[in-house]
Every structure is written in C-alpha cells, then in structure tokens.
Design a protein around this nucleic acid. Structure first.
Length: 246
DNA sequence: CACCAGGCCGTGC
DNA sequence: GCACGGCATGGT
C-alpha cells in the first residue's frame, strides 16, 4: 500500500487539517492556508518539506517495523505509510492538552473554536491557531464557554509557561519529558505526544487507552524499548490498527 | 440511563 | 511510591 496521507493528517497527531469534498486536505499554518492533495505537493515548499519530514526514509522504517513481529506486520499492512509530522511546539502542546479524556472529533472542534475566537483571519473564514500572545488576556470563563471544560485552566497555565517550550531541544528524553510536565495538564502521555509530533523525538511511545489495550493483549510484559529504534512510528501503526479493528 | 474518548490532578495511604 | 475519584462535553 502507498502513502496514507489521510491517516497522517487526520489520525490523531494533528488537529490542524480538514478534509475537503474533493479529498484534498487544507490547514492554516505559518500564516497561510495550505492545500495538499498528495505528498508531492509538499516537496517544493520549504515549510511543508520540513513539516512532512520529507528527509526521513519512511519506507525503510516501515519495512523494518513490519519485519519485527507478526502483530506489527499486520498493523503495517493494514494501512499505507504513516509519517510523523513536525508541528509547531505551541500548537502541539495545546492540541494534546485538549486531547486528554477526549476524542479526535471533539478535539478538532475545540481546536477550531480556539482559532476562531482567539486567532486571526488569514483568509475569509480561515483562522490561524492563537499564539500565546493572542491568548494572554483570555479568561477561564471564555475558554470554558467554547467547550474546553476542565482543560481551561491548563491552557492558561500553558500560556504563562509557554517559554518552557523553548527549553526542550537538546535535552535528554527523560529530562524533556519532566520539563514539559511542569505545565499543568501535561502528564506522561501528553508530553510524549508533544515530543514526537513537534520535536522529532522518535523514542516516544504514548500510552493512551487504545495503546494500553494493545500492550496488554499483544505485548504483555514488554516495554516501549522493545520497539527500538522505531518506538514512535511503531506506536502510530499499532494505534491506527487497533482503532480500525476496535 | 449508562459508558467512553490519544489523561491528569489532587488527595490519601 | 501507587490507588482512587473527579472532571466538561458530546457521542453512542
């Protein structure tokens, strides 16, 4: 099977993208509205080249993962190639704070409402995700009013501590995890998602309710170390697979 | 009505 | 250190 752009963009690592009626994808990033139909659309754009991590050999990684064991082979063959996006640190941090005890559809809705209420319009009807500066005067009541619920104070704490996101690069993985968790609403799972989908830390292995089920049923006694050096990508394939089969 | 969703916080032990 | 209840909201 070939590239699965849909799974990469809408499968739970980003909440910036929407699927258009013609099957293409669009998102407001970098003060622009990007439209993508295939990965080749990204190759000639420097921003998208980085964003889609086009310098990494995902086909090679995919083959290596599929050869690891029977479950991974099944997971890999159940879908096309999945990539690990390199998203903006702030967007990723808030996205995954929103994700806790939530589902992908509702997370996307919250992401869009935050953009419409606190971001700015870059094209008619298309809003950027709000920066920490744009959220500096937001109140807990305003954030709750758009449906963020108990996550509202976490967002405000992240605004206060947004500089933490500039102190992550170069840290050993465990220290990066600890530093991110100084922000309220960021625990081990959210921190690992931020590190993978924004800081290119491929040793992350987020354990959400789906992946805990996978580990219990198919990898009892195993730790993320088992999947080295493809922890994050293996996790993405297993996550996609277990969700597809329920 | 119940239970769940890409969990974490605060408390108690 | 680990176990537990609570938590906003919308879908099933």
């Amino acid at each position: 099977m070939s590239e699965n752009l849909r799974e990469t963009l809408l499968g739970g690592q980003s909440f910036s993208w929407r699927e258009e009626a013609d099957g293409s994808f669009s998102a407001v990033l970098n003060e622009k509205v990007y439209h993508i139909s295939t990965l080749s659309d990204a190759a000639s754009d420097p921003f998208l080249y980085e964003y889609f991590d086009l310098g990494y050999d995902y086909e090679g990684a995919r083959a290596a993962i599929a050869g690891k064991d029977e479950i991974l082979r099944r997971a890999v063959e159940s879908t096309g190639t999945i990539r690990l996006l390199k998203q903006d640190h702030w967007i990723a941090a808030i996205s995954f704070i929103l994700s806790q005890n939530n589902n992908i559809k509702r997370i996307t809705g919250l992401y869009n409402r935050l953009s419409e209420h606190f971001g700015h319009e870059v094209e008619p009807g298309r809003f950027s995700f709000p920066t920490p500066y744009e959220l500096r005067n937001a109140t807990e009541e305003e954030l709750r009013a758009i449906g963020t619920g108990f996550r509202a104070p976490f967002i405000l704490d992240a605004v206060d501590k947004s500089s933490v996101l500039d102190e992550i690069d170069g840290l050993p993985f465990d220290e990066a995890m600890d530093r991110l968790q100084t922000i309220k609403g960021i625990g081990p799972k959210v921190a690992s998602c931020i590190l993978i989908f924004s800081y290119q830390r491929r040793e992350g292995f987020p354990l959400d309710v789906w992946m805990k089920k996978v580990m219990k049923e198919y990898y009892p006694g195993k730790t993320p170390e088992y999947f080295h050096p493809y922890e994050a990508l293996s996790q993405q394939y297993l996550f996609s697979w277990i969700r597809s089969i329920g």
